[in-house]
Amino acid sequence: MREHTSMLERVGADVVAVRSVEQLDDLDGLVMPGGESTTIAYLLTTSDIRPTLEKKIEDGLSVLGTCAGLILLAHEILDGRSDQWSFDVLPLAVRRNGYGRQISSFETLVNVKGVGEVPGVFIRAPKIETWSEDLEVLAFHDHGDGEHPVLVRRERIWGCSFHPELTNDERIHRLFVDAL
């Protein structure tokens, strides 16, 4: 959250760290950060943020989900908990820890359409396994098993398998903020 905040400030956004439902008012865009999707889902429920956020997304709030945030936006979660829910706004199926556990976590360069090569840090990262044709794929990565999307967008909803906030390169955040 701290890294996302400093990245967003660098690209000129005013940033609020959302912990309660009232803080959702007056947002132009929302970043759902990494972490554990089970934990974030649990806290979204106990803090009553979930129903209001569902409505805001339906009404056109822009959202960038990174890592766990991507899982929370996905249509289908593979290898998740049986009771795991998501906002179901990106037409794709994502596998939790699809790139392996921590020992397999990696960094690499990711070639983003219209941007160029950006550093991608993949931490126990989710892998997009299948995706719909109406999804715009901004970057693929081939981890030895064919090309999988790692940065995607459908209208106002963006998903990213890696952690653009963990490097010094703010171009992904700029892309998201410029599109608001």
Partner: peptide
């Protein structure tokens, strides 16, 4: 379509500290 090929690094300080950042 742009794509990155596999020239990835495991076990770097960034990757190792990255999980702690997520916790």
């Amino acid at each position: 379509m742009s794509s990155s090929h596999d020239s990835s690094t495991i076990g770097s300080a960034l990757v190792k500290r990255g999980l702690a950042d997520m916790l």
